[in-house]
Design a protein around this nucleic acid. Structure first.
Lengths: 235, 235
DNA sequence: TTGAGAGTTATTGCATACACTAAAAACATG
DNA sequence: CATGTTTTTAGTGTATGCAATAACTCTCAA
């Protein structure tokens, strides 16, 4: 059996998630049950379930009798999100420093060096972004605490739809790489407290940059209507 | 209109939550859609939605084509949960120390003193537990970061069904109060780092105590069948 | 007794139908 | 032309029915 007991609601949910992360569904776009149902060739019931789950995950917002909308983060919320994320990643790396296996550390270093390589060769910025994402993920997963990992990644998920707007501000990438350098050094030196501080500062700064960029380019990205979907007003 | 746009699914979800926290539904109990539907006088549809939401929140576990079960935590998971919770509360108090208003600090102190009073007079242990819960909640909310607050409380929710098994081990309550003392002192002294360490240790210890108690009394509490509901096997 | 397998029942996942809500459109009025 | 009101339309929330699947029961062999 090829599908491992994925219910149709799951399938729809995964599809919508992909579209959100891929940018086909931008923050603020309305999700209309009937349309989605016919688009995926199912009835409204599994679509509703998918929407319920996504709403619970914070990826979309939903109020009674009103249609679901891809979650939209105002600058204030975004700042809070990154602040919380910084604390969680800090907590995770604090544990990871003493808990990562040699293999895991090796893997982390590989990712870091691949990113450096990409930077030296003026490589694809998207690839660099992916490597940066992997870097954070490996560190978080290194704490070997499922609850903490899930919580952190759940939070990270909510800002993911905005990653596509990460601009390549002058010097931003280099700065990012330097930060990662410091984090790796602290981990390899076994200095958990230093690692925590480094990643905290780093993630806060990332959020700040992204927030500022979004605030500035609000209109330009809000006008991006993928495949003719209805557009909601920002609050 | 008396109900503020609560959909039936919401009503059912809240009712189930209450039953889980109140102990009428114990971890491991099966939730059967049809029965719940007739019990609440609605159709299966809103019940299904409620279950979906609760599953996403981690309060119940659900797999395709199998019935939903009130989430059951094995000792390992419980330990992880408390470890994560300790880190999150640590992060929160780190921020709260500098962010709580005078009024909030006052409120926190009031709660703490009410707990001390309860302890001196050999008061109701349930009331003491509630005060302890309020104590943690006030601290967490003092960080004024919605994302962090929600995340922490979401995690705390998952161990709530087990709070009822918190035994009054000899000296446990006094120890608890002493810990709270230290936390309050650190907060009022403005020492964020100390506050973090204190609450981390404290929450970890709480989890350890609870976990040990549950592991020991596994059979006795697993046999507790409230109102004739079906009992699932622990793994 | 205990365990495995077949047959039966119970329960879930999904589709469909309909009632009720809220947004949009059409209309009337100053 | 602007503004307030009614009508229409679109869309959500819920009930219900049916097919697929899991849970239970019973039988029979070891």
């Amino acid at each position: 059996m090829t599908d491992q007991d994925l219910t149709q609601a799951d399938t729809v949910r995964l599809a919508i998630e992909r579209e959100i992360f891929g940018g086909q569904l931008a923050p603020g776009d309305a999700l209309e049950e009937g349309r989605l149902a016919s688009r995926f060739g199912v009835s409204r019931t599994p679509v509703r379930e998918a929407i319920t789950q996504l709403a619970q995950a914070g990826l979309i917002t939903k109020r009674a009798h009103k249609r679901a909308v891809v979650a939209q983060l105002d600058p204030g919320t975004m700042l809070e999100l990154f602040e919380a994320l910084a604390e969680l990643e800090g907590a995770a790396v604090f544990l990871s420093t003493s808990r990562m296996s040699e293999a895991e550390k090796r893997e982390l270093k590989d990712i870091h060096e691949a990113a450096a390589e990409n930077l030296r060769n003026d490589g694809d910025p998207n690839e660099y972004a992916d490597l940066g994402f992997a870097f954070h993920q490996r560190i978080v997963r290194g704490c070997h605490n499922t609850a903490l990992i899930d919580t952190t990644e759940w939070l990270a998920l909510r800002v993911l739809p905005y990653r596509r707007f990460q601009v390549v501000a002058p010097g931003r990438l280099q700065r990012n790489q330097t930060d990662h350098d410091a984090i790796i050094s602290a981990i390899f030196a076994g200095d958990a407290e230093a690692a925590r501080e480094e990643i905290r500062r780093h993630t806060l700064e990332q959020g700040d940059a992204l927030m500022r960029f979004i605030a500035l380019n609000k209109t330009s990205h809000a006008d991006f209507h993928p495949n003719g979907l209805i557009k909601e007003q920002p609050l």
